[in-house]
Computed example of a mutant assay.
Amino acid sequence: MRRIWLRCDPAGVPLAALIPCDTMTETRLQAVSDLERWLRGMASASAVSQPTSYQSQRLDLLLSILDLRGERQVTSHEVARCLIYPRLDVGRGAAWKSSPERRRTQRLIREAEALSAGGYRALLAGRAGRQN
């Protein structure tokens, strides 16, 4: 799954891409090429490794966490209840503070924030794995 937010109708407006010339220029050019092919309804010709199903689901979860926490400060309890453990009563108070669900939720929030703060570049460069 790919998420793209275009602030205009791509069919009616020509798009532009600003690409810095740095160590990731080739990767960025390939990503723009893939986007252009996707907009025309064609399959990607990219040699950049595609994420596995698990990686795609995890990235989707991390993006959902960022979306939920985006404009307002949402507690880790709310993130757990809404996104990570929607069918589980995650508890309150001391039960929540000492739970493994809380620790996992906090790790996922930190990972989402690291992804937002620049960790996504490692994904674009084809370096899979845990973001610090």
Rank of each mutant, 00 (worst) to 15 (best):
M1R: 07
L6F: 09
P100E: 14
T52G: 13
A16M: 05
P14S: 14
E101W: 05
S49G: 14
G118S: 12
I65R: 03
H77G: 04
M1L: 08
Q57I: 01
A117W: 01
T27Q: 14
D89W: 01
E101K: 04
R58V: 10
A112R: 10
G129S: 09
E71C: 03
A11F: 11
A17G: 09
Q50A: 14
T23D: 11
A80N: 01
M42H: 05
V13Y: 10
L124H: 08
C21Q: 12
R87F: 04
E113Y: 03
V13N: 13
R130E: 14
L83P: 06
L66Q: 10
V48I: 08
P100W: 03
S33N: 05
T23A: 15
W96E: 00
A117L: 07
L35W: 02
C82W: 00
A122H: 13
W38I: 00
R121H: 13
R121N: 12
W96Y: 01
P10A: 14
E36M: 09
Y85M: 06
R92K: 08
A128L: 08
Q55T: 08
W38K: 05
L68N: 00
G41D: 07
E101Y: 01
R121M: 15
E113M: 10
C82G: 00
Q131S: 06
M42S: 05
A117K: 08
I109H: 01
R81T: 03
R40W: 04
G91H: 08
R107V: 03
T52K: 08
S99L: 01
L88F: 08
E78R: 10
W38A: 13
T75I: 01
V48S: 15
G12R: 12
T105N: 12
S46F: 02
E71A: 03
N132D: 13
A114F: 10
G41I: 03
M24S: 15
D9K: 06
P86F: 07
D9P: 02
A114T: 07
I19L: 15
L66P: 06
Y120M: 08
V74W: 02
R40E: 12
G93Y: 00
W38Y: 10
E111D: 12
L62A: 08
T25N: 08
G93K: 00
L108W: 03
R28Y: 09
S116H: 07
L123A: 07
G93E: 00
T23M: 07
D67F: 02
P51S: 03
V79R: 06
Q50E: 12
N132M: 10
G93F: 00
R110K: 12
D22T: 03
A112V: 08
R110H: 09
A117R: 08
A43V: 06
P86L: 09
V13S: 14
H77S: 09
Y85R: 05
L59C: 02
T105V: 10
D9I: 02
L39D: 13
P20A: 11
I65F: 05
T27Y: 14
I84G: 11
Y120T: 02
A117P: 08
L15S: 07
S53C: 06
R127L: 10
E78Y: 00
T75G: 03
C8F: 01
K97S: 07
R121Q: 15
L108Q: 07
R110Y: 02
D67R: 04
E36Q: 07
E78D: 14
R121V: 13
S53Q: 14
V90H: 01
D67S: 07
M24W: 05
R58I: 06
